[in-house]
Simulated assay, not measured.
Amino acid sequence: MVKLSRGRCRLRYLLARTKITQAELSRRTGYSKQQISNWVNNRELMSFEAAATLAYVLKCQIEELYELVINH
């Protein structure tokens, strides 16, 4: 059976691509700058609701927020 899991957060790359700062993302989403930093630096995994919010603001798919790891 194949199982997918979340790898590294790609938020750092998505912010660079969209030229949005962590502070601006914080302002647009209502999440604290510290929370955004925790996600960017892989200290915490974001919830589905947070991922959906960030994907909406960054105009990307939720799947783009994390690398996917395939476990066989």
Rank of each mutant, 00 (worst) to 15 (best):
A51R: 08
L25G: 00
N38Q: 09
L45D: 00
H72T: 08
L11D: 02
R12K: 15
V2S: 08
E64L: 05
T18R: 15
T29V: 05
R27F: 10
R43H: 09
Q61I: 07
L25E: 00
M1R: 12
S26Q: 08
K19H: 10
R8Q: 11
L15N: 01
Y31D: 06
R6I: 11
L58D: 06
S47R: 04
I70S: 06
I70H: 02
A55I: 14
F48P: 04
L58G: 03
I36Q: 08
E44P: 01
A50Q: 06
I62P: 01
E49M: 10
H72G: 12
Y31L: 15
E64P: 02
Y31Q: 03
Y56R: 15
G30Q: 12
L15S: 11
E24K: 12
S5K: 15
V2T: 13
A51L: 05
M1K: 13
L4D: 07
I36C: 08
E63L: 11
E49W: 07
E44V: 08
I20K: 07
L15M: 15
E24R: 13
K33E: 05
C9H: 01
E49G: 09
E64F: 03
C60E: 02
K33W: 07
R12Y: 10
L11A: 03
R10K: 14
Q22D: 01
I62R: 07
E24M: 10
R27V: 06
R12M: 00
S26D: 09
H72C: 00
V57T: 15
C60W: 05
E64N: 12
G7P: 02
E67H: 09
R43Y: 08
Y66K: 06
H72Q: 09
V69G: 02
V69D: 11
N41I: 05
Y31I: 13
Q35E: 13
V69A: 05
A55V: 09
K19V: 03
S5E: 12
T18N: 10
A50T: 02
V69Q: 00
L68Y: 00
T21W: 04
E63K: 13
R12E: 04
